[in-house]
Design a protein around this nucleic acid. Structure first.
Length: 667
RNA sequence: GUCCCGGUAGCUCAGCUGGAUAGAGCAGCUGACUUCUAAUCAGCAGGUCACAGGUUCGAAUCCUGUCCGGGAUGCCA
């Protein structure tokens, strides 16, 4: 498939215009001018102008001239006088650039009339495949799925918006042990009546029930081992303590460290033991449940067998799987619908089963994989351990499916870039996978692991419920909305003149709650772990969804009060004049939108866009405080401010939509 | 053991492809609602950017080492 040509639009990107101007000067001064163009950036301090160019210092070094002299040479040849003030040289050789205010005003009126807010399409559109969310079906989705889902969705939206061809694919886990579990559950414990009426609920119940029985037996089996481990660790700790008594200083430090580590480990193991005992106790407290558990003492192995039978093509299990899968998929679909997320494809692990053998054969026949300890391994430079693609018992693995997936995607879509939005713990797996893809012959494609950190609880540990279970995603969404609702109600109590009916309150709560949840995630640097807190994500100030949603509603309020029709207004606007500082600053911020999008794609970091929107909102706040809109000093000021308001509103709406967040007309 | 990620204000976090005096929000203190929505705005205070070296005209940012935290580590995904 050939990418469709995309009509070029006029770019509002100040930075790329400056770069173009500098390029024609630098071309004559230095052969490798690319890196120097990167040294143009928005000024950090308003006193230094609007933009600054920092290349004179390194350039001076390179060509052996004083930096300030180099700066002067550049300025002399720079052809920007019709849209910039005369550049100034400061300090060791910074070139400070200030845009002509009239020019900014002019750009803004163009932006006002452009439905795309001046964002031009990518000059060279690429094909991207985005692999994200990828939950195990038949297990309830939990808090761990939110990041992949939300980050991947946002990246897909941004890439599309700037004109790339984007294919999103939800690589569902639909072929794993969890199906062995519900098959076993169905065969032994199904409530036919319930299954007919509400299959999803019944399958969910079966999954949890079997999980419980398995945990029970597994815990029992692990008790002796855990106890003896604790004993051993205690012994070792005692030994260390004795050694420590007579140890010299340098050794003592090392010993103390080892001792601390041993104690830590013992504590961990004790916790494991306590948890196992709890699981056992839970079952034993219930007489009838205990009887069932005892009657199914071989359940753990039996579940593995059911899974193996399914994979081997056993007709009964296959038929059950065919029956269960649609129900399971519908179930997760409900969550996606609520989060407004959809995929072009949902090709799960099962989809690739028919080709795993072929892939393995190819690796074998081409000498890319060799046998080691009975397993088929791909040995890769730069890795100590190989990537195993077939187990000793002949079974295939995660890595095998991933390779087959790569082959399928290459053949079907021939992507330039494939992004895997998966948590950071799988980094090494992907490093190996990509290295394998490389030797396989796909070295021209960029494979990229877009890694992200863990969602933490207030205790600084992975977010869990009080009883230590993972937090279900559906409940998470409900609570966010419910808390947003109480914020809505609280605020409406304060202002008597605003009247909101029940339905609108609920709708605002839904948008704000889900928006807050997504925004909390997306405003964070994806690489770091982050602390989950309803209170923080729903705060009215700071880098939160409610704060960003507010100016949108405010601007709507202004237009409503002034009885101004937006589209008529946009067409009618003649010229803008940015007299006030706040107006000019806000205008500059608005012109940076396209650049913010580009920056968020450099390293696939939606938080770059989120931070920009936050800055824009803060800039609007200052403007709003100082500049009356409807009752401006004169008609031109009024027009200018209405235009700025309209641009802020649209930029926020568009920007938030690229984060997958909806807006409310008033709040 | 090896490898990967992190350590920035009391707390939660931006900034990290090197740039001028390190930024937000919360918490603390002070102010601003007869006003286009105060779900807001203005101000004060708060820092050895873990530590030590190095590269550089210039380092929170790059390199090396140390400490601390998390993760991965041959047949789970």
């Amino acid at each position: 498939m050939i990418p469709l040509p995309i009509p070029a639009r006029r770019s509002m990107n100040v930075l790329s215009r400056l770069q173009a101007a500098f390029q024609s000067v630098l071309e004559n001064m230095v052969p490798e001018h690319g890196p120097y163009l990167e040294m143009i950036r928005p000024a950090q301090d308003a006193r230094f102008g609007d933009y600054q160019a920092n290349m004179a210092m390194p350039l001076g070094k390179k060509i052996g001239l004083p930096p300030r002299e180099v700066a002067q040479k550049i300025i002399d040849q720079l052809d920007i006088s019709n849209w910039c003030e005369t550049p100034e040289i400061a300090g060791p050789g910074f070139i400070n650039l200030k845009l002509k205010t009239d020019w900014i005003a002019n750009e803004l009126s163009t932006m006002l009339k452009d439905p795309n807010l001046g964002v031009s399409s990518a000059a060279a559109p690429k094909t991207y495949i985005l692999d994200y969310s990828s939950p195990n079906v038949a297990k309830p989705m939990h808090v761990g799925h939110i990041r992949s889902t939300v980050i991947g969705d946002s990246l897909a939206r941004i890439l599309r918006f700037v004109g790339h061809r984007v294919i999103t694919d939800n690589h569902l886990g639909d072929w794993g042990t969890q199906f062995g579990m519900i098959i076993y559950g169905y065969k032994h414990f199904v409530d036919e009546e319930r299954y007919k009426r509400t299959p999803i609920d019944e399958l969910g119940r079966l999954y949890r029930f079997v999980r419980r029985l398995m945990d029970y037996h597994y815990s029992q089996a692990s008790l002796p081992d855990l106890s003896s481990q604790i004993f051993k660790l205690a012994e070792q700790a005692k030994q260390k303590e004795e050694q420590l008594e007579g140890a010299a200083k340098p050794d003592a430090k090392k010993l103390r460290k080892e001792l601390a580590r041993l104690n830590e480990k013992r504590k961990d193991t004790q916790n494991q033991l306590a948890k196992a005992e709890q699981l056992i106790q839970d079952v034993e407290q219930d007489e009838s449940l205990l009887q069932v558990a005892n009657a199914h003492s071989g359940i753990n192995q039996a579940v593995l067998n059911e899974t193996a039978d399914l994979h081997a093509g056993d007709p009964t299990n296959r038929q059950l799987w065919d029956e269960f899968l649609p129900a399971c998929r519908d179930d997760i679909q409900k969550i996606y619908q609520r989060l407004d997320i959809d995929f072009d494809h949902e090709l799960g692990e099962s989809f690739y089963q028919p080709w795993l053998g072929e892939v393995v054969e190819e690796f074998k026949s081409r000498g890319l994989a060799t046998e080691s300890d009975g397993a088929l391994c791909v040995f890769l430079d730069a890795f100590d351990s190989p990537m195993i693609i077939q187990k000793r018992d002949g079974a295939f693995l995660y890595a095998t499916t991933d390779l087959a997936t790569i082959r399928y995607r290459m053949q079907k879509w021939n992507p330039d870039v494939v992004l895997y939005v998966v948590d950071h713990r799988q980094h090494e797996h992907f490093a190996k996978l990509f290295a394998a893809a490389d030797v396989w012959g796909y070295e021209q494609t960029e494979f990229r692991h877009v890694a992200f950190g863990t969602v933490m609880g207030p205790d600084g540990k992975p977010y869990k419920t009080r009883s230590g279970d993972t937090v279900g995603l559906e409940g998470l969404l409900d609570e966010a909305v419910q808390r947003a609702r109480s914020v809505v109600d609280q605020n409406l109590e304060k202002s008597a003149d605003l009247k909101f009916e029940e339905a609108e309150r609920q709708q605002i709560a839904e948008v704000v709650g889900l928006g807050a949840l997504k925004y909390a995630d997306l405003s964070q640097n994806r690489a770091s772990d982050y602390e989950f807190s309803y209170d923080k994500m729903l705060a009215l100030k700071g880098n939160t969804a409610p704060y960003l949603l507010y100016p949108y509603a405010r601007v709507n309020g202004i237009f409503a009060k002034g009885e101004i029709d937006s589209s008529t207004f946009r067409q009618a606007v003649k010229g803008l004049t940015l007299d006030r500082d706040q107006e000019r600053r806000l205008g500059l911020l608005l012109l940076r939108f396209e650049n913010a999008l580009a920056e968020s794609l450099v390293d696939y970091t939606p938080n770059t866009l989120a931070n920009y929107l936050y800055e824009l909102t803060a800039g609007f706040g200052q403007f709003y405080e100082k500049c009356k809109v409807l009752e401006a000093e004169n008609e031109t000021a009024r027009q200018t401010r209405l235009a700025l308001c309209d641009l802020v509103r649209r930029t926020l709406k568009t920007g938030l939509s690229l984060l997958g967040i909806d807006v409310v007309e008033r709040m």
